[in-house]
Simulated scan of single mutants.
Amino acid sequence: MPLDLYAGIPVTDYAAALKWYERLLGSPPTFVASDTEAVWELAEHRSLFIEQLPERAGHALHTIFVDDFDELVAEITERGIEPAERETYSNGVRKAIYRDPDGNEIGFGGAPL
């Protein structure tokens, strides 16, 4: 079954969120859909977007699994964003949780060491 993912994050202040997500994700958006919506293609047919929707902001929960967890967390730290939390599950899977200015949660997960 082919799979496409278009995961949304509602934000209060588009301009501020755009800057924060550029730092978190390490690049400008892949494209800007409108004056209040920006999209990052994380992998083919798998995108994350922010949209100014103040009444819904702060409730997103997304986890993205990556191949090189430690490298990604180090790169994000170099860009000035620290994880709000770190978790290690009983099976050894690790997760770094980031929260944007609205409180939306974006986690990055990685396989055990």
Rank of each mutant, 00 (worst) to 15 (best):
L5M: 09
T12L: 08
H59N: 12
P83V: 05
Y89N: 03
Y98D: 05
A111I: 10
Y21C: 02
A7C: 08
P112C: 13
T77D: 11
A57L: 10
A33E: 11
D4S: 14
L61R: 15
A74S: 15
I97Q: 03
T63L: 13
G107W: 02
F65C: 03
E105K: 14
A17D: 00
A96L: 02
R56H: 15
F69M: 03
S90H: 07
P10D: 09
E71L: 07
E37F: 12
A17M: 00
D4P: 07
I76S: 04
I64G: 11
P112Q: 11
M1Y: 04
A96P: 02
A96M: 04
A60E: 05
W40A: 10
R79Y: 07
G109Y: 01
V93A: 09
L42S: 03
A15H: 08
P10G: 04
P28C: 04
V32M: 09
D13W: 09
L72F: 09
G92L: 08
L24D: 09
T36N: 15
A33C: 01
D67P: 03
E51T: 15
F49R: 05
T77Q: 07
G80L: 11
A96C: 03
F108G: 02
L42W: 02
E41M: 13
A60G: 05
Q52A: 08
L113Y: 07
I76V: 15
E82G: 00
E55H: 15
P29N: 06
L24A: 11
E22V: 05
A38K: 09
E41K: 03
E87S: 06
T88H: 06
A84S: 15
E75F: 00
L53W: 10
D102H: 00
D4T: 13
E82D: 14
